[in-house]
Computed example of a mutant assay.
Amino acid sequence: MTPTLVPHHPARDWAEIQERMLVPLYEAAYARLGVGPGTRLLGLDCGTGLALLMAAARGASVAGAEGDHARVELARTRLPDAVTVTPDVPADGSYDVVTAFHAADRTSFGPADLTRVAQSGAAVVLAGWGPPERCATEPLLRLADRLADRRPSPGTDLGALAVRAGLRPVGAGRVACPFGYADEASAVRGLLSTGVFDAAVRATDPAQVEKEIEEALAPYRRPDGTVWMPNVFRYVVARVA
């Protein structure tokens, strides 16, 4: 199989292809916490800002922190002027909702940041991949580990992560977040934009990484050329003491 070798812009591919796949997760978390007017929300690892945009549409006062500068710049172009996105965690510690939707994946911030920015009693949402048997993307995650020549991750215990951060878990949920792509090339670009394959791309030939992703997508290609990967994501709600 010949790799697509389409020029990639990871931040733009995340914004245009991949970020929308997590909309059900964002909606479920916001509905559970009653995010709306009067909520002061901070999104850590906020990507290119879609989750922040959704919270702002609910009437919340929102801000974001994102360690990838290209994503910061894209977020600033798509968000209202009242929404600030910075590469660093704000010094303000008065947020009553803090989200870390990528707590088990690509993260730029540590557990201490979760509590430093939140007021007493604030809700913190940690999210990540669901059970391996419920995630069609699981073989791609293992592929990323193999290509990066690293031991497969056992997965992140979000409840334990919350406790290590000094938080008190109070609830949890699972949300279906299927990954649907218009074609194989879009699927490759979207998956590469997640950051899961960054170490693999650094460790080996990028064309080989792309070729192996395409081969791993074979079970999920439909007759019309689209790619459909059912996934379940987990989230934990915790409180700041």
Score class of each variant (00 low, 15 high):
residue 152 P to R: 04
residue 93 G to T: 10
residue 121 G to M: 04
residue 218 A to P: 00
residue 101 F to D: 07
residue 140 L to F: 06
residue 206 P to S: 06
residue 106 R to Y: 08
residue 220 Y to T: 03
residue 167 L to D: 13
residue 126 L to N: 13
residue 158 L to D: 12
residue 124 V to H: 09
residue 204 T to G: 10
residue 144 A to N: 04
residue 187 A to F: 03
residue 144 A to L: 07
residue 143 L to I: 04
residue 169 P to T: 13
residue 105 D to H: 10
residue 107 T to F: 00
residue 204 T to A: 07
residue 135 C to L: 05
residue 197 F to W: 09
residue 196 V to F: 02
residue 163 V to M: 07
residue 124 V to F: 08
residue 153 S to H: 06
residue 130 G to H: 14
residue 193 S to A: 15
residue 189 R to H: 11
residue 207 A to K: 08
residue 152 P to N: 09
residue 112 A to C: 01
residue 202 R to G: 15
residue 203 A to V: 05
residue 93 G to E: 10
residue 159 G to T: 15
residue 93 G to I: 03
residue 172 A to F: 04
residue 191 L to E: 15
residue 102 H to E: 05
residue 207 A to W: 13
residue 161 L to N: 06
residue 105 D to R: 06
residue 219 P to C: 12
residue 116 R to A: 15
residue 138 E to V: 00
residue 191 L to N: 12
residue 198 D to T: 13
residue 188 V to F: 06
residue 207 A to Y: 09
residue 175 V to P: 10
residue 141 L to Y: 05
residue 169 P to E: 14
residue 140 L to H: 04
residue 159 G to D: 14
residue 105 D to E: 12
residue 128 G to D: 14
residue 114 L to N: 06
residue 164 R to N: 14
residue 195 G to P: 08
residue 198 D to V: 01
residue 158 L to Q: 08
residue 192 L to K: 03
residue 211 K to Y: 12
residue 115 T to K: 07
